[in-house]
Design a protein around this nucleic acid. Structure first.
Lengths: 210, 210
DNA sequence: GTCTATAAATAGATAGAC
DNA sequence: GTCTATCTATTTATAGAC
């Protein structure tokens, strides 16, 4: 959400064809996002994506060169959603509150089945991601925003200052693929709101009595 | 580790053929265990398993009826290792210390690349597991052992008593597939021992200052 | 740009000789 | 029981007509 995006250059009206093209790509990425959240990269097939969008597989490959790029684009959108959320936070909130709000948001999106998750093992996928500039840029931006809050929260004494900031950052990120919310939901004993509060509690306060 | 296993019935000497059979099955399960830890169920192929064991794929299918059963057997062995570890703990240790030791052990095994992990999504795999009695029995036994410590630790005031025990149980289990240790290792900034202590810290004390 | 049709490779699983 | 060879289905990806 910067000035450039809010005030596009003069001849901004996109042609009808361009709009259709973007709308279709958006539908594709949404389908990929949902399938990545539901079954993960390895179990997701390109046929499923095409079927869900309602187009032929060959048409899909006109938009994206490979399954890996499809996943990368879904991650870019997810990071953009994250960036939009981070930007929407009250600038006067404490750094700790911003971090808690971020974790709460990650858990919400995950429970809604809209958090794409990629295997950290797959090497060809990692290669695609590492060279995908749009992805790397947004990942860096999100990391730096969170990193700033982490350091500020450690400085103001609200966050454990003995933890290396990178440990805190990864612990926050990991809530996006935490299996605990899903397990708790499958027991049927908790509402989504309760699950989120419980996981938030264990994340920031730990299991110990205090 | 019960008396039945320690004192087998009289004609206990297994035939040479039986021993070879068991040794081969053990080699198979070990290979599956390693591959499940390395790349997960979906990315693991039966061809890879056969190649790693050094036998033909058809021979492998003489031992196990399907890829799902292969994974289930690997999980059984992993649970047996867990049971053996739990049984080895000092009976005089506090419940909280037992839980911490368990988490430490889970992280160690995971960092050694010996913790098989299965997708919670795959439905055919879940069906196989749910009807696999050896698996379900051991899972229940481990859960009950940990559940006992959790309730005791909450009773003696060392564990947060406001958390439902199931939340604590799942939070402990989840350390077996926590991506944070792997991420921290990939930075190259920490030894495995440091990683384990840091994750233990965040697990039991949380991110907050205290 | 979208489609149908099809490659090319790989997956899980089995047949049948030894 | 192990092997080679093969089956059948599925997967990623492309060719080529419209």
């Amino acid at each position: 959400m910067n000035a450039t995006e809010l005030t596009p250059p003069a001849p901004a009206r996109r042609s009808f064809r361009e709009q259709m093209h973007l709308a279709r790509e958006d539908a594709i990425v949404q389908a990929v996002n949902r399938l990545l959240a539901e079954k993960g990269f390895d179990a997701m097939t390109v046929d499923e994506v095409a079927a869900e969008v309602g187009i032929a597989k060959a048409s899909l490959y006109r938009h994206f060169p490979s399954k890996e790029d499809l996943a990368a684009e879904a991650m870019v959108r997810a990071l953009e959603r994250a960036q939009a959320f981070l930007a929407s936070l009250n600038p006067n909130a404490t750094p700790l509150d911003c971090l808690k709000a971020t974790v709460r948001w990650l858990l919400q999106v995950q429970l809604q089945g809209e958090m794409p998750s990629l295997p950290s093992a797959n090497s060809t996928l990692r290669a695609t991601l590492m060279t995908h500039h749009a992805y790397m840029d947004r990942l860096l931006a999100v990391s730096e925003q969170l990193g700033g809050w982490i350091q500020a929260a450690q400085a103001d004494g609200s966050l454990d200052a003995s933890l290396p900031p990178i440990v805190v950052l990864y612990t926050v990120f990991a809530r996006a693929c935490d299996p605990v919310p899903g397990f708790l939901r499958s027991t049927g004993d908790f509402s989504d709101e309760q699950i989120i509060e419980l996981v938030l509690q264990t994340c920031f306060h730990g299991l110990n009595a205090h």
